[in-house]
Design a protein around this nucleic acid. Structure first.
Length: 458
RNA sequence: GGCCCGUUCGUCUAUCGGCUAGGACACAGCCCUCUCAAGGCUGAGAGAGGGGUUCGAUUCCCCUACGGGCUACCA
Protein backbone atom coordinates (compact mmCIF):
# COMPACT_ATOMS: atom_id res chain seq x y z
CA UNK A 1 0.00 0.00 0.00
CA UNK A 2 2.96 2.32 0.38
CA UNK A 3 5.42 2.00 -2.47
CA UNK A 4 3.03 1.06 -5.21
CA UNK A 5 0.55 3.85 -4.67
CA UNK A 6 3.26 6.33 -4.02
CA UNK A 7 4.91 5.38 -7.28
CA UNK A 8 1.65 5.71 -9.12
CA UNK A 9 0.91 9.05 -7.59
CA UNK A 10 4.31 10.41 -8.57
CA UNK A 11 4.18 8.94 -12.04
CA UNK A 12 4.16 11.37 -14.94
CA UNK A 13 1.44 9.38 -16.66
CA UNK A 14 -2.07 10.63 -17.22
CA UNK A 15 -5.02 8.41 -16.44
CA UNK A 16 -5.76 5.31 -18.50
CA UNK A 17 -2.48 4.69 -20.21
CA UNK A 18 -2.63 2.49 -23.30
CA UNK A 19 0.61 1.13 -24.70
CA UNK A 20 1.29 -1.45 -27.34
CA UNK A 21 3.90 -3.86 -28.60
CA UNK A 22 3.73 -4.37 -32.33
CA UNK A 23 6.08 -7.10 -33.49
CA UNK A 24 6.38 -8.57 -36.93
CA UNK A 25 6.30 -12.39 -37.16
CA UNK A 26 9.76 -12.99 -38.51
CA UNK A 27 10.14 -16.41 -36.97
CA UNK A 28 12.01 -15.31 -33.90
CA UNK A 29 11.66 -12.81 -31.09
CA UNK A 30 14.62 -10.51 -30.96
CA UNK A 31 16.00 -9.67 -27.55
CA UNK A 32 15.60 -5.98 -28.30
CA UNK A 33 11.98 -6.61 -29.16
CA UNK A 34 11.51 -8.53 -25.94
CA UNK A 35 12.92 -5.60 -24.00
CA UNK A 36 10.63 -3.17 -25.83
CA UNK A 37 7.69 -5.40 -24.95
CA UNK A 38 8.88 -5.53 -21.36
CA UNK A 39 9.15 -1.76 -21.03
CA UNK A 40 5.70 -1.29 -22.50
CA UNK A 41 4.27 -3.94 -20.22
CA UNK A 42 6.02 -2.50 -17.19
CA UNK A 43 4.70 0.93 -17.96
CA UNK A 44 1.17 -0.40 -18.32
CA UNK A 45 1.39 -2.36 -15.09
CA UNK A 46 3.03 0.51 -13.25
CA UNK A 47 0.35 2.99 -14.27
CA UNK A 48 -2.55 0.57 -14.16
CA UNK A 49 -3.02 0.99 -17.90
CA UNK A 50 -3.56 -1.46 -20.74
CA UNK A 51 -0.94 -3.40 -22.66
CA UNK A 52 -2.00 -4.08 -26.23
CA UNK A 53 -0.41 -6.67 -28.50
CA UNK A 54 -0.69 -6.02 -32.20
CA UNK A 55 0.83 -8.29 -34.80
CA UNK A 56 2.27 -6.51 -37.82
CA UNK A 57 1.91 -9.42 -40.20
CA UNK A 58 1.92 -7.50 -43.43
CA UNK A 59 4.59 -9.67 -45.01
CA UNK A 60 2.47 -12.60 -46.10
CA UNK A 61 5.43 -14.83 -46.93
CA UNK A 62 6.63 -14.96 -43.36
CA UNK A 63 3.20 -14.81 -41.83
CA UNK A 64 2.97 -18.39 -40.61
CA UNK A 65 1.21 -19.75 -37.51
CA UNK A 66 4.60 -20.96 -36.28
CA UNK A 67 6.19 -17.54 -36.64
CA UNK A 68 3.31 -15.96 -34.77
CA UNK A 69 3.55 -18.58 -32.06
CA UNK A 70 7.19 -17.75 -31.46
CA UNK A 71 6.08 -14.28 -30.43
CA UNK A 72 3.05 -15.29 -28.40
CA UNK A 73 4.92 -18.05 -26.58
CA UNK A 74 7.93 -15.86 -26.03
CA UNK A 75 5.84 -13.18 -24.37
CA UNK A 76 3.93 -15.71 -22.32
CA UNK A 77 7.18 -17.28 -21.19
CA UNK A 78 8.43 -13.90 -20.04
CA UNK A 79 5.16 -13.39 -18.20
CA UNK A 80 4.16 -10.39 -20.30
CA UNK A 81 0.44 -10.90 -20.52
CA UNK A 82 -1.52 -8.64 -22.83
CA UNK A 83 -4.84 -7.04 -21.98
CA UNK A 84 -5.83 -6.76 -25.60
CA UNK A 85 -4.62 -8.62 -28.64
CA UNK A 86 -4.75 -12.02 -30.29
CA UNK A 87 -6.16 -14.92 -28.33
CA UNK A 88 -4.76 -17.43 -30.79
CA UNK A 89 -2.03 -17.62 -33.39
CA UNK A 90 -4.52 -17.47 -36.25
CA UNK A 91 -4.98 -13.97 -37.73
CA UNK A 92 -8.61 -14.79 -38.42
CA UNK A 93 -9.12 -16.27 -34.99
CA UNK A 94 -10.44 -14.91 -31.73
CA UNK A 95 -9.04 -11.87 -30.02
CA UNK A 96 -9.31 -10.09 -26.70
CA UNK A 97 -10.34 -6.44 -26.58
CA UNK A 98 -12.70 -4.15 -28.40
CA UNK A 99 -10.34 -2.56 -30.89
CA UNK A 100 -9.50 -5.62 -32.94
CA UNK A 101 -8.70 -7.31 -35.11
CA UNK A 102 -5.18 -7.14 -33.76
CA UNK A 103 -3.55 -8.62 -36.82
CA UNK A 104 -2.75 -6.03 -39.45
CA UNK A 105 -3.46 -8.55 -42.18
CA UNK A 106 -7.12 -8.31 -41.09
CA UNK A 107 -7.33 -4.54 -41.06
CA UNK A 108 -7.18 -3.65 -44.76
CA UNK A 109 -10.62 -1.99 -44.70
CA UNK A 110 -9.59 0.34 -41.94
CA UNK A 111 -6.50 1.40 -43.81
CA UNK A 112 -8.29 2.12 -47.06
CA UNK A 113 -10.95 4.06 -45.17
CA UNK A 114 -8.25 6.15 -43.57
CA UNK A 115 -6.52 6.70 -46.90
CA UNK A 116 -9.82 7.92 -48.32
CA UNK A 117 -10.03 10.32 -45.44
CA UNK A 118 -6.66 11.80 -46.36
CA UNK A 119 -7.67 11.94 -49.99
CA UNK A 120 -10.83 13.84 -49.07
CA UNK A 121 -8.69 16.31 -47.21
CA UNK A 122 -6.51 16.75 -50.26
CA UNK A 123 -3.41 15.59 -48.44
CA UNK A 124 -2.54 12.80 -50.84
CA UNK A 125 -1.50 12.63 -54.48
CA UNK A 126 -0.63 9.90 -56.90
CA UNK A 127 2.89 9.34 -58.12
CA UNK A 128 3.66 6.50 -60.53
CA UNK A 129 0.84 4.44 -59.17
CA UNK A 130 1.76 5.00 -55.54
CA UNK A 131 0.14 7.45 -53.15
CA UNK A 132 2.23 10.11 -51.52
CA UNK A 133 1.39 12.07 -48.43
CA UNK A 134 1.86 15.81 -48.62
CA UNK A 135 4.40 16.26 -45.88
CA UNK A 136 5.03 19.63 -44.34
CA UNK A 137 8.26 21.29 -45.37
CA UNK A 138 9.13 22.77 -41.99
CA UNK A 139 11.14 20.91 -39.36
CA UNK A 140 9.05 18.95 -36.85
CA UNK A 141 9.72 18.93 -33.14
CA UNK A 142 9.37 15.51 -31.59
CA UNK A 143 8.59 15.76 -27.89
CA UNK A 144 10.16 12.65 -26.44
CA UNK A 145 9.79 11.56 -22.84
CA UNK A 146 13.32 10.18 -22.86
CA UNK A 147 15.25 12.22 -25.41
CA UNK A 148 13.60 15.55 -24.77
CA UNK A 149 12.47 17.79 -27.62
CA UNK A 150 14.09 16.55 -30.80
CA UNK A 151 14.00 18.93 -33.75
CA UNK A 152 13.98 16.91 -36.94
CA UNK A 153 15.35 19.02 -39.81
CA UNK A 154 14.81 17.84 -43.36
CA UNK A 155 17.48 15.59 -44.83
CA UNK A 156 18.99 16.46 -48.20
CA UNK A 157 16.72 13.95 -49.91
CA UNK A 158 13.69 15.36 -48.16
CA UNK A 159 14.64 18.84 -49.38
CA UNK A 160 14.10 17.42 -52.87
CA UNK A 161 11.09 15.23 -52.08
CA UNK A 162 9.56 15.58 -48.63
CA UNK A 163 6.38 13.70 -49.52
CA UNK A 164 6.59 10.04 -48.60
CA UNK A 165 4.69 7.07 -49.97
CA UNK A 166 1.84 5.80 -47.83
CA UNK A 167 0.35 3.35 -50.31
CA UNK A 168 2.54 1.39 -52.70
CA UNK A 169 1.72 1.00 -56.36
CA UNK A 170 0.54 -2.55 -55.61
CA UNK A 171 -2.07 -1.09 -53.29
CA UNK A 172 -0.45 -2.05 -50.01
CA UNK A 173 -0.23 0.60 -47.33
CA UNK A 174 3.24 1.12 -45.86
CA UNK A 175 4.42 0.78 -42.28
CA UNK A 176 4.23 4.45 -41.37
CA UNK A 177 0.61 4.70 -42.36
CA UNK A 178 -0.68 1.50 -40.79
CA UNK A 179 1.30 2.11 -37.65
CA UNK A 180 -0.26 5.52 -37.12
CA UNK A 181 -3.73 4.40 -38.12
CA UNK A 182 -3.65 1.48 -35.72
CA UNK A 183 -2.33 3.62 -32.90
CA UNK A 184 -5.21 6.01 -33.48
CA UNK A 185 -7.82 3.27 -33.77
CA UNK A 186 -6.49 1.46 -30.72
CA UNK A 187 -6.37 4.66 -28.65
CA UNK A 188 -2.68 4.32 -27.90
CA UNK A 189 -1.53 7.03 -25.49
CA UNK A 190 2.18 6.20 -25.24
CA UNK A 191 4.41 4.87 -27.97
CA UNK A 192 7.37 3.20 -26.32
CA UNK A 193 9.70 1.77 -28.95
CA UNK A 194 13.30 1.44 -30.03
CA UNK A 195 15.35 4.49 -30.83
CA UNK A 196 15.68 3.25 -34.39
CA UNK A 197 12.22 4.77 -34.92
CA UNK A 198 13.09 8.21 -33.61
CA UNK A 199 13.96 9.85 -36.92
CA UNK A 200 10.82 8.61 -38.62
CA UNK A 201 8.62 9.87 -35.85
CA UNK A 202 8.37 13.20 -37.65
CA UNK A 203 6.44 11.40 -40.37
CA UNK A 204 4.16 9.84 -37.80
CA UNK A 205 3.47 13.12 -36.07
CA UNK A 206 2.55 14.70 -39.39
CA UNK A 207 0.18 11.83 -40.08
CA UNK A 208 -1.48 12.09 -36.69
CA UNK A 209 -2.07 15.78 -37.31
CA UNK A 210 -3.37 15.11 -40.78
CA UNK A 211 -6.00 12.88 -39.21
CA UNK A 212 -6.80 15.63 -36.76
CA UNK A 213 -5.58 13.58 -33.84
CA UNK A 214 -3.31 14.67 -31.02
CA UNK A 215 -0.20 12.46 -31.29
CA UNK A 216 0.51 10.08 -28.42
CA UNK A 217 3.45 10.62 -26.09
CA UNK A 218 6.64 9.18 -27.49
CA UNK A 219 9.37 7.42 -25.57
CA UNK A 220 12.27 6.11 -27.62
CA UNK A 221 14.37 3.66 -25.69
CA UNK A 222 18.04 2.93 -26.39
CA UNK A 223 19.03 -0.08 -28.44
CA UNK A 224 20.69 -3.29 -27.31
CA UNK A 225 24.03 -3.89 -29.00
CA UNK A 226 26.37 -6.87 -29.17
CA UNK A 227 29.15 -7.04 -26.62
CA UNK A 228 31.51 -5.54 -29.19
CA UNK A 229 29.18 -2.62 -29.79
CA UNK A 230 27.94 -3.73 -33.19
CA UNK A 231 24.32 -3.97 -34.06
CA UNK A 232 22.72 -7.10 -32.76
CA UNK A 233 21.26 -9.18 -35.50
CA UNK A 234 19.39 -12.43 -35.76
CA UNK A 235 22.37 -14.73 -35.70
CA UNK A 236 24.29 -13.15 -32.85
CA UNK A 237 24.60 -14.97 -29.54
CA UNK A 238 21.70 -14.25 -27.27
CA UNK A 239 19.81 -12.33 -29.93
CA UNK A 240 16.91 -14.76 -29.98
CA UNK A 241 14.73 -15.22 -26.96
CA UNK A 242 14.07 -18.80 -27.97
CA UNK A 243 17.67 -19.71 -27.19
CA UNK A 244 17.16 -18.80 -23.56
CA UNK A 245 13.85 -20.55 -23.34
CA UNK A 246 15.47 -23.73 -24.61
CA UNK A 247 18.50 -23.38 -22.37
CA UNK A 248 16.25 -23.41 -19.33
CA UNK A 249 16.78 -19.85 -18.17
CA UNK A 250 14.49 -18.52 -15.46
CA UNK A 251 12.06 -16.03 -17.05
CA UNK A 252 12.29 -13.78 -14.01
CA UNK A 253 16.04 -13.61 -14.47
CA UNK A 254 15.74 -12.63 -18.11
CA UNK A 255 13.22 -9.87 -17.39
CA UNK A 256 15.30 -8.71 -14.44
CA UNK A 257 18.40 -8.48 -16.62
CA UNK A 258 16.56 -6.84 -19.49
CA UNK A 259 14.94 -4.29 -17.22
CA UNK A 260 18.39 -3.12 -16.15
CA UNK A 261 19.46 -2.55 -19.74
CA UNK A 262 18.57 1.07 -20.31
CA UNK A 263 16.66 1.53 -17.10
CA UNK A 264 17.97 1.96 -13.60
CA UNK A 265 16.26 1.90 -10.22
CA UNK A 266 18.83 4.57 -9.31
CA UNK A 267 20.14 2.80 -6.26
CA UNK A 268 22.38 -0.24 -6.02
CA UNK A 269 19.62 -2.78 -6.58
CA UNK A 270 20.46 -5.58 -8.96
CA UNK A 271 18.31 -8.56 -8.07
CA UNK A 272 14.71 -7.46 -8.21
CA UNK A 273 11.49 -9.44 -8.17
CA UNK A 274 9.04 -8.46 -10.89
CA UNK A 275 6.66 -6.95 -8.38
CA UNK A 276 9.28 -4.47 -7.32
CA UNK A 277 10.35 -3.65 -10.86
CA UNK A 278 6.74 -2.78 -11.65
CA UNK A 279 6.53 -0.52 -8.64
CA UNK A 280 9.73 1.29 -9.44
CA UNK A 281 9.70 1.42 -13.23
CA UNK A 282 9.00 4.70 -14.95
CA UNK A 283 10.01 6.44 -18.15
CA UNK A 284 12.06 9.31 -16.70
CA UNK A 285 14.57 6.78 -15.36
CA UNK A 286 15.27 5.32 -18.77
CA UNK A 287 18.63 6.41 -20.15
CA UNK A 288 19.44 7.46 -23.65
CA UNK A 289 22.64 5.58 -24.35
CA UNK A 290 22.63 2.22 -26.10
CA UNK A 291 23.56 -0.76 -23.95
CA UNK A 292 25.69 -3.76 -24.78
CA UNK A 293 24.49 -7.24 -24.12
CA UNK A 294 26.54 -8.91 -21.40
CA UNK A 295 26.04 -12.65 -21.32
CA UNK A 296 28.08 -13.12 -18.15
CA UNK A 297 25.92 -10.82 -16.13
CA UNK A 298 22.79 -12.50 -17.43
CA UNK A 299 24.24 -15.85 -16.43
CA UNK A 300 25.02 -14.61 -12.97
CA UNK A 301 21.56 -13.18 -12.62
CA UNK A 302 20.01 -16.37 -13.89
CA UNK A 303 21.96 -18.35 -11.32
CA UNK A 304 20.78 -16.05 -8.55
CA UNK A 305 17.16 -16.52 -9.60
CA UNK A 306 17.71 -20.23 -10.12
CA UNK A 307 18.91 -20.89 -6.59
CA UNK A 308 16.01 -18.90 -5.15
CA UNK A 309 13.38 -20.87 -7.06
CA UNK A 310 10.80 -22.93 -5.14
CA UNK A 311 11.77 -26.59 -5.40
CA UNK A 312 8.73 -27.56 -7.45
CA UNK A 313 9.61 -25.02 -10.12
CA UNK A 314 13.19 -26.11 -9.99
CA UNK A 315 12.09 -29.68 -10.51
CA UNK A 316 10.09 -28.63 -13.56
CA UNK A 317 13.18 -27.04 -15.05
CA UNK A 318 15.13 -30.21 -14.31
CA UNK A 319 12.58 -32.25 -16.19
CA UNK A 320 12.75 -29.92 -19.17
CA UNK A 321 16.53 -30.10 -19.03
CA UNK A 322 16.23 -33.82 -19.55
CA UNK A 323 17.31 -35.22 -16.20
CA UNK A 324 16.79 -38.97 -16.16
CA UNK A 325 15.23 -39.74 -12.79
CA UNK A 326 15.37 -43.47 -13.36
CA UNK A 327 11.97 -44.08 -11.78
CA UNK A 328 12.83 -42.47 -8.46
CA UNK A 329 10.09 -41.31 -6.12
CA UNK A 330 8.97 -37.69 -6.03
CA UNK A 331 10.29 -37.23 -2.52
CA UNK A 332 13.69 -38.63 -3.44
CA UNK A 333 13.86 -36.43 -6.56
CA UNK A 334 13.10 -33.27 -4.64
CA UNK A 335 15.57 -34.08 -1.89
CA UNK A 336 18.24 -34.85 -4.48
CA UNK A 337 17.63 -31.71 -6.51
CA UNK A 338 17.56 -29.55 -3.40
CA UNK A 339 21.18 -30.43 -2.78
CA UNK A 340 22.09 -29.37 -6.33
CA UNK A 341 20.11 -26.17 -6.57
CA UNK A 342 22.70 -23.86 -5.04
CA UNK A 343 25.55 -25.49 -6.88
CA UNK A 344 24.58 -25.64 -10.52
CA UNK A 345 25.03 -22.43 -12.46
CA UNK A 346 23.03 -23.46 -15.47
CA UNK A 347 20.15 -25.87 -15.73
CA UNK A 348 21.89 -27.35 -18.74
CA UNK A 349 24.60 -28.68 -16.44
CA UNK A 350 22.11 -30.30 -14.10
CA UNK A 351 21.60 -33.70 -15.81
CA UNK A 352 25.27 -34.54 -15.50
CA UNK A 353 25.67 -32.96 -12.09
CA UNK A 354 22.92 -34.97 -10.43
CA UNK A 355 23.14 -38.19 -12.43
CA UNK A 356 24.81 -40.16 -9.59
CA UNK A 357 21.57 -39.91 -7.62
CA UNK A 358 19.61 -41.85 -10.17
CA UNK A 359 21.92 -44.69 -11.19
CA UNK A 360 24.07 -47.16 -9.35
CA UNK A 361 26.46 -47.42 -12.28
CA UNK A 362 29.03 -45.01 -10.92
CA UNK A 363 31.78 -44.22 -13.38
CA UNK A 364 34.90 -43.14 -11.56
CA UNK A 365 36.82 -40.19 -12.84
CA UNK A 366 40.32 -41.65 -13.18
CA UNK A 367 42.25 -38.67 -11.87
CA UNK A 368 39.91 -38.46 -8.91
CA UNK A 369 39.88 -42.18 -8.22
CA UNK A 370 43.64 -42.67 -8.32
CA UNK A 371 44.01 -40.18 -5.49
CA UNK A 372 40.88 -40.97 -3.53
CA UNK A 373 41.36 -44.71 -3.67
CA UNK A 374 45.05 -44.61 -2.84
CA UNK A 375 46.15 -47.65 -0.77
CA UNK A 376 46.74 -45.60 2.39
CA UNK A 377 43.10 -44.52 2.36
CA UNK A 378 41.79 -48.08 2.43
CA UNK A 379 41.99 -48.88 6.13
CA UNK A 380 40.41 -45.61 7.26
CA UNK A 381 37.73 -46.01 4.63
CA UNK A 382 36.91 -49.50 5.92
CA UNK A 383 36.49 -48.03 9.38
CA UNK A 384 34.26 -45.27 8.05
CA UNK A 385 32.11 -47.89 6.38
CA UNK A 386 31.81 -49.71 9.68
CA UNK A 387 30.79 -46.56 11.55
CA UNK A 388 28.20 -45.67 8.90
CA UNK A 389 26.84 -49.17 9.18
CA UNK A 390 26.21 -48.63 12.86
CA UNK A 391 24.98 -45.06 13.27
CA UNK A 392 21.38 -44.54 14.20
CA UNK A 393 20.18 -41.82 11.89
CA UNK A 394 21.58 -41.34 8.44
CA UNK A 395 21.30 -37.56 8.56
CA UNK A 396 23.82 -34.95 7.35
CA UNK A 397 24.76 -33.79 10.85
CA UNK A 398 25.38 -37.32 12.10
CA UNK A 399 27.30 -38.28 9.00
CA UNK A 400 29.51 -35.26 9.38
CA UNK A 401 30.18 -35.60 13.08
CA UNK A 402 30.87 -39.29 12.71
CA UNK A 403 33.32 -38.76 9.89
CA UNK A 404 35.11 -35.94 11.66
CA UNK A 405 35.32 -37.88 14.91
CA UNK A 406 36.91 -40.76 13.06
CA UNK A 407 39.37 -38.52 11.28
CA UNK A 408 40.26 -37.09 14.65
CA UNK A 409 40.69 -40.49 16.18
CA UNK A 410 42.91 -41.72 13.35
CA UNK A 411 44.77 -38.42 13.24
CA UNK A 412 43.92 -37.98 9.60
CA UNK A 413 42.84 -35.01 7.58
CA UNK A 414 39.14 -34.93 6.94
CA UNK A 415 39.73 -35.04 3.23
CA UNK A 416 41.36 -38.43 3.50
CA UNK A 417 37.97 -39.81 4.43
CA UNK A 418 35.90 -37.42 2.37
CA UNK A 419 37.63 -38.06 -0.91
CA UNK A 420 37.14 -41.82 -1.06
CA UNK A 421 33.58 -41.43 0.17
CA UNK A 422 32.77 -38.78 -2.42
CA UNK A 423 34.40 -40.75 -5.19
CA UNK A 424 32.60 -43.90 -4.14
CA UNK A 425 29.22 -42.17 -4.09
CA UNK A 426 29.48 -39.91 -7.11
CA UNK A 427 32.60 -40.89 -9.03
CA UNK A 428 33.56 -37.28 -9.59
CA UNK A 429 35.29 -34.42 -7.86
CA UNK A 430 32.53 -31.83 -7.86
CA UNK A 431 29.08 -32.29 -6.46
CA UNK A 432 26.74 -31.38 -3.64
CA UNK A 433 27.86 -31.39 -0.04
CA UNK A 434 29.03 -34.92 0.74
CA UNK A 435 26.96 -35.26 3.91
CA UNK A 436 23.82 -33.97 2.24
CA UNK A 437 24.27 -36.25 -0.70
CA UNK A 438 24.86 -39.34 1.42
CA UNK A 439 21.79 -38.56 3.49
CA UNK A 440 19.69 -38.40 0.35
CA UNK A 441 21.18 -41.59 -1.09
CA UNK A 442 20.44 -43.40 2.16
CA UNK A 443 22.38 -45.98 4.05
CA UNK A 444 21.85 -48.93 1.68
CA UNK A 445 23.06 -47.14 -1.41
CA UNK A 446 25.96 -45.51 0.36
CA UNK A 447 27.23 -48.72 1.90
CA UNK A 448 26.95 -50.67 -1.32
CA UNK A 449 28.81 -47.90 -3.17
CA UNK A 450 31.45 -47.96 -0.48
CA UNK A 451 31.81 -51.71 -0.96
CA UNK A 452 32.21 -51.37 -4.70
CA UNK A 453 34.87 -48.75 -4.18
CA UNK A 454 36.67 -50.88 -1.61
CA UNK A 455 36.82 -53.67 -4.14
CA UNK A 456 38.77 -51.31 -6.39
CA UNK A 457 41.26 -50.48 -3.73
CA UNK A 458 43.15 -53.77 -3.70
C1' G B 1 26.58 12.58 -48.32
C1' G B 2 22.25 14.58 -45.18
C1' C B 3 19.38 14.24 -40.60
C1' C B 4 18.90 12.42 -35.47
C1' C B 5 20.55 10.22 -30.83
C1' G B 6 24.52 9.08 -27.79
C1' U B 7 29.82 8.97 -25.21
C1' U B 8 31.54 7.59 -16.60
C1' C B 9 35.88 1.33 -14.80
C1' G B 10 36.20 -4.39 -20.00
C1' U B 11 30.39 -4.51 -19.36
C1' C B 12 25.59 -2.60 -16.96
C1' U B 13 25.09 1.69 -14.20
C1' A B 14 24.95 5.87 -9.71
C1' U B 15 26.04 11.03 -9.60
C1' C B 16 19.61 16.64 -9.52
C1' G B 17 27.94 22.00 -10.04
C1' G B 18 31.54 20.48 -4.64
C1' C B 19 34.32 13.69 -6.27
C1' U B 20 38.83 10.95 -1.78
C1' A B 21 33.76 9.50 -8.75
C1' G B 22 29.76 4.77 -5.53
C1' G B 23 27.52 -0.20 -6.71
C1' A B 24 26.94 -4.79 -9.71
C1' C B 25 29.00 -8.57 -13.36
C1' A B 26 33.74 -10.25 -14.85
C1' C B 27 38.98 -10.41 -13.05
C1' A B 28 43.09 -10.99 -9.00
C1' G B 29 44.48 -12.07 -3.87
C1' C B 30 43.20 -13.56 1.13
C1' C B 31 39.67 -15.85 4.70
C1' C B 32 36.03 -19.72 5.33
C1' U B 33 35.67 -24.80 3.64
C1' C B 34 34.50 -32.08 2.30
C1' U B 35 34.68 -30.82 -3.68
C1' C B 36 32.28 -27.02 -6.40
C1' A B 37 29.72 -22.95 -5.29
C1' A B 38 27.97 -19.40 -1.86
C1' G B 39 29.59 -15.88 1.80
C1' G B 40 33.28 -12.28 4.05
C1' C B 41 37.51 -9.01 3.27
C1' U B 42 40.96 -6.65 -0.04
C1' G B 43 42.83 -5.14 -4.86
C1' A B 44 43.14 -3.46 -9.88
C1' G B 45 39.94 -0.68 -13.08
C1' A B 46 36.37 5.12 -15.65
C1' G B 47 33.61 10.50 -16.77
C1' A B 48 36.60 10.47 -25.50
C1' G B 49 39.65 15.09 -26.78
C1' G B 50 39.68 20.45 -27.04
C1' G B 51 37.51 25.07 -25.92
C1' G B 52 34.22 28.01 -23.03
C1' U B 53 30.55 29.45 -18.58
C1' U B 54 31.69 29.24 -13.18
C1' C B 55 34.96 30.39 -7.05
C1' G B 56 34.46 25.30 -8.66
C1' A B 57 32.75 21.17 -13.89
C1' U B 58 31.75 14.10 -14.89
C1' U B 59 27.60 17.22 -14.36
C1' C B 60 25.77 23.36 -18.34
C1' C B 61 27.19 25.32 -23.68
C1' C B 62 30.17 24.85 -28.34
C1' C B 63 33.59 22.22 -31.60
C1' U B 64 36.08 17.74 -32.96
C1' A B 65 36.52 12.49 -32.71
C1' C B 66 34.17 8.01 -32.11
C1' G B 67 29.69 4.78 -31.71
C1' G B 68 24.63 3.88 -33.04
C1' G B 69 20.17 4.96 -35.72
C1' C B 70 17.44 6.93 -39.81
C1' U B 71 17.66 8.55 -44.80
C1' A B 72 12.95 2.84 -49.33
C1' C B 73 6.92 1.85 -53.30
C1' C B 74 11.37 -2.61 -45.65
C1' A B 75 9.22 -2.95 -40.90
Amino acid sequence: MCCFEEARRLSSAPMSVRVRFAPSPTGYLHIGGARTALFNWLYARHTGGKFVLRIEDTDEERNTPEAINVILEGLRWLGLDWDEGPAVNDPKGESIGEYGPYYQSQRADTYSRRVDELKAKGLVYEDEGALRFKMQREPITIPDLICGDVVRELTDREEVQPDFVIVRSDGKPVFHLVNVVDDIEMRITHVIRGEDHLSNTSKHIALFRAFGVEPPKFAHIPLILNSDGSKMSKRDDGASLEGWQKAGYVPGAVTNYLSLLGWSPKDDSQLLPMKEIIERFDLPQVNRANARFDLEKLQWMNYEHLRALPIDQYTELAIKAGVDFGGASAGYIEAALATCQGKVKQVEDLPEFCSFYFTDEIVYDQAMASKAFAPENKEPFIQLRAKYGDIGTFAPETLESTLKALADELELKVRNLVMPARCACTGVKVGPSLYDLMAVLGRDRVLSRFDKALAQMD
